[in-house]
Simulated scan of single mutants.
Amino acid sequence: MAAVVAGMVIQSTPVSFGAVGTPMIVGVGTGVEPLTQITNLSSFIFEVATKVATLHFIAGLLIPLFLVGILTKFFGKNKSFSEGLKVWKFALFAAFAMTIPYIIVAYLLGPEFPALLGGLIGLAIVIPAAQKGFLMPKEEDVWDFEEKDRWDPTWTGRVELKNSEIYAGKISMWRAWAPYVLIAAFLLISRLTVVGDWLKSATIVVPNIFGTDISSSWEILFSPGFIFILVAVITYVMHGMKPSDFGRAWKASGKTIIGLVIWTIAIYIIATNNKRLDAIGGKKKSA
């Protein structure tokens, strides 16, 4: 329960730029384009993204401290929010380590990179600092969970933690981080004008979907999904994975994707149907 709560709270800062900027590029872009006469949609999305990044930067400064307070309040022996405030120095340092690169990247590179690069840069700064005890609380102020046998049963529910059989052995730190760094590097390279124009040349267009005036296009090589797949294949070689382990990872990912595809198609059908009803209603009003 604590892990889920922590993940949800800490994700509030990068959420608008998650999935390589999809909420901005796809959400704002496709939502605004049919309704306005914006001449330069890319510039408009960039402007919206920078304003959103500024708001997240302001709110994000207190998110780590707020998160620690939630842990001490709801999962601590004394149920005290103030216990979490004892780590305020390190919490603020951790916040700035992520949010400053985050907002700089938003203004310089656009909506695809703030969460990705902000998080990577923040980790690179915070982890070594924590290991050296920088701004860490005094020993008497260190907080931890109680022994597991004293946990509230609702914290774990039916989840059973056990060792994974997939683990194949230790790998070096650089190989562990390499996939994330490669994703960031390939995304940056793909967004260069010359490279991006070449990648966009491979595009699949599906016109008049289901007999409507709605069309869709997929820039295969320019899509962030392609880069994720490419890095996954490179990781398979780099980590010396077994084919069975690689296949198991694809199978697990496939199950998640199938569920999302079903949900997306259902939403798309509803949206298309509503658009038709609106069109019919408009014709009746005109008549």
Results as ranks from 00 to 15, higher is better:
A2Y: 07
A6P: 03
M8W: 12
M8K: 13
S12R: 10
V15K: 13
V15F: 15
V15Q: 10
F17K: 00
G18K: 02
V20S: 07
I25V: 15
G27K: 01
T30V: 12
E33C: 08
E33Y: 09
L35S: 09
L35P: 03
N40H: 08
S42E: 11
I45N: 00
A49G: 08
V52D: 10
L67K: 03
V68P: 00
G69K: 01
I70Y: 06
I70L: 11
L71T: 07
F75L: 10
F75C: 01
F75Y: 11
F75I: 06
S80Y: 04
F81N: 03
S82A: 15
G84I: 00
K89D: 11
F90E: 00
A97I: 04
M98A: 10
I100R: 01
Y102N: 00
A106Y: 00
P114N: 01
A115N: 04
L116M: 07
L116N: 09
L117S: 00
L117K: 01
G119Q: 02
G122V: 05
L123Y: 14
A124L: 14
V126L: 06
I127C: 13
G133P: 00
L135E: 04
P137V: 04
E139Q: 09
E140H: 09
D141A: 09
E146P: 06
E147Y: 12
K148Q: 14
D149Y: 15
W151K: 05
P153F: 07
P153M: 05
V159G: 06
L161F: 09
I166C: 15
I166P: 04
Y167S: 11
I171N: 09
M173C: 11
M173P: 10
M173Y: 13
W174V: 15
A176M: 11
Y180V: 04
Y180S: 08
F186A: 04
F186L: 14
I189V: 15
L192A: 14
V194H: 14
V195I: 15
G196R: 10
S201H: 13
I204A: 13
V205E: 09
P207V: 02
P207W: 04
N208V: 05
I209G: 06
I220S: 09
S223N: 12
P224D: 00
G225S: 02
F226G: 02
F226I: 04
F226N: 03
F228R: 03
A232W: 06
T235L: 03
M238A: 04
M238K: 01
H239R: 12
H239I: 07
K242F: 09
K242D: 10
K242V: 06
P243A: 07
P243E: 03
D245S: 14
A249L: 12
W250D: 02
W250N: 14
K251F: 10
A252I: 11
G254L: 05
T256V: 15
G259A: 06
L260M: 14
L260F: 11
V261C: 14
T264P: 03
I265R: 01
A266D: 08
T272E: 10
N273V: 13
N273A: 10
L277P: 07
K284E: 08
